[in-house]
């Protein structure tokens, strides 16, 4: 299972990086969503798929009786999903506002902070 997951994770990363390398903000946003899934699956696979039983303590027991799935990566991923979602929401609003003010989603045309022909700073003292 881990081997198959590794290959899928590789594909997810490849597609997400490809989208992030694009010049269009919207495509980059899709890349960000894919990136978060890729990272989550990577963490999940790194924690091994030993058992497919959910990590729960049965009623009346002190600890799981049989082998359960590794709970630690699950906890990490749960945090990661939430943060990735809020990050995505922020980027989406940012892209939307940038589009509203600049009228484009092409990063080549977004040169407000770093203008193309800035020129030398003054040469005096």
């Amino acid at each position: 299972m881990e081997t198959a997951l590794s290959l899928v994770v590789g594909c997810l990363f490849a597609v997400s990086l490809y989208l992030l390398l694009s010049k269009h903000i919207i495509r980059m946003l899709l890349g960000v969503v894919l990136l978060s899934n890729a990272v989550n699956l990577l963490i999940f696979a790194a924690g091994r798929v030993s058992s497919i039983a959910p990590p729960l303590v049965p009623e009346g027991a002190e600890a799981p009786l049989a082998a359960v799935a590794n709970p630690l990566p699950q906890a990490l991923i749960l945090t990661a999903i939430v943060i990735a979602f809020s990050f995505f929401a922020f980027l989406l609003v940012l892209a939307y506002r940038a589009y509203q003010d600049l009228g484009t989603d092409d990063t080549d045309e977004m040169r407000v902070a770093e203008p193309e022909d800035d020129g030398l700073p003054p040469l005096g003292y």
Partner: peptide, 9 residues
């Protein structure tokens, strides 16, 4: 992108 993906895999 493929190189990067392969790297992660």
């Amino acid at each position: 992108a493929l190189a990067g993906g392969a790297g992660f895999a």
